[in-house]
Computed example of a mutant assay.
Amino acid sequence: MFGLLSRLYYMSNPPKTHQAQANSPLKTLNFGCLGAAKIAPGVLIDPSPRDAKRAKKFAEEHGFQKSYGGDTGYQDMIDDPEVDVIYNPLPNLHFEWTMKALNGGKHVLLEKPATDRAEEAAQIFSLAASKNLVVLEAFHYRFHPAIQRVKAILESKELGAIKNITVALTAPAGTAKDGDIRWSYELGGGSTMDPGCYTVNVLRYLASSSSPTAVLTAFAVPYSPRPQHKKVDKMFPATLALENGIFGELHSNLSEPKLFGIIPRIPKLTATVRCESGTVEIFNFLIPSYYHYITVAPSGKPRRVEKSYSFHGVAKGEDWWTTYRFQMEAFVDKIQGRTPQTWLEPQDTIDNMKWIEEIYAKDGFGSRPPSKYVYREDEK
Score class of each variant (00 low, 15 high):
309 Y>R: 02
266 I>S: 12
276 E>G: 10
374 V>I: 11
108 V>W: 02
18 H>S: 13
135 V>A: 03
29 L>H: 06
168 A>L: 08
351 D>C: 05
107 H>Q: 04
190 G>W: 01
184 S>H: 14
83 V>R: 11
12 S>M: 14
121 A>T: 00
365 F>A: 07
276 E>H: 07
9 Y>R: 10
223 Y>A: 13
372 K>F: 00
62 H>R: 05
192 T>C: 10
337 G>L: 08
359 I>C: 05
180 D>Q: 05
258 K>R: 14
373 Y>T: 11
313 G>Y: 00
113 P>E: 09
163 K>E: 15
136 L>D: 14
120 E>T: 05
240 L>A: 05
159 L>G: 02
37 A>L: 06
86 I>N: 06
58 F>N: 04
380 K>Y: 03
361 A>N: 11
254 L>F: 04
135 V>R: 04
107 H>I: 01
60 E>D: 15
41 P>S: 06
56 K>A: 15
287 I>N: 14
311 F>M: 03
23 N>E: 13
178 D>N: 12
159 L>T: 01
33 C>L: 12
303 R>L: 13
153 I>P: 15
157 K>F: 10
134 V>L: 04
256 E>N: 10
277 S>A: 15
150 V>D: 00
44 L>C: 01
30 N>A: 13
29 L>D: 02
39 I>Q: 02
103 N>L: 09
347 Q>A: 14
54 R>N: 14
344 L>R: 10
285 F>T: 06
302 P>F: 00
292 H>T: 00
368 R>Q: 07
300 G>Q: 02
172 P>Q: 04
263 I>P: 03
40 A>I: 07
97 W>V: 03
336 Q>T: 00
210 S>E: 07
252 S>K: 07
231 K>P: 05
372 K>D: 13
225 P>V: 08
